[in-house]
Amino acid sequence: MDNEQLTHETRSFVAHQFDDLEQQKEAGTLGMWAFLATEILFFGGMFMAYFVYRFSYPQVFAAASQYMDVALGGVNTGVLLVSSLTMALAVHAAQEGKRKQIILFLIITMVFGTVFLVIKGVEYHHKFVEHLVPGFDFHYEGAEPGKSEIYFILYFIMTGFHALHLIIGIGVLTVIAVMTARGRFTKEYYTPVEISGLYWHFIDIVWIFLYPLLYLIHVHK
């Protein structure tokens, strides 16, 4: 956190409300974990809805999932996994206080994040062309169009919220990169880099669940 107006108190990295750096680090980390708990419940609500319908209409969901582009989804899974790796490398660089490396890895991570979003956009476009976007001239050839529509609306909402998180994640990393460039972090204090990394990994993990649940139902069958 930057506390420009409070710099009269201390020029160090410790914000006015904290006693020392240790306390500030612990608070930041605990705060992020608590936030991730919120996030888990946020996606949990959607997963709950998904599971209720998946168990009510297993065949319909399996059939509808055939319309997913398994290859593009697979590529995207890979992209996100690699981005998690580069994110981890950024945190590692922060531990060693290598400012240029941090920025480099953050940028690579953001590029991968953007690639993911572009591919996701391509997939969304395909669905739009194929009339598989619920509410926008939805037209489904297979059996049970109604229940399939539930599958598709869940697909769009779940992946949409995931993409929104990714966009926010890219925004956060941008801020962190700028802060790094301004020399806000040292070997001793790099908690913001670390906890942004936690957030990024969380987004990755959500996708690890979304991909099999949405794309691979029919493969499993």
Binding site: Y53, G135, F138, E144, P145, I150, I153, L154
Partner: peptide
């Protein structure tokens, strides 16, 4: 969207 997850007409609960 006019399409519902909770809409009994299309199988929603």
């Amino acid at each position: 969207t006019g399409v519902g997850i909770f809409d009994p007409n299309i199988g929603g609960d």
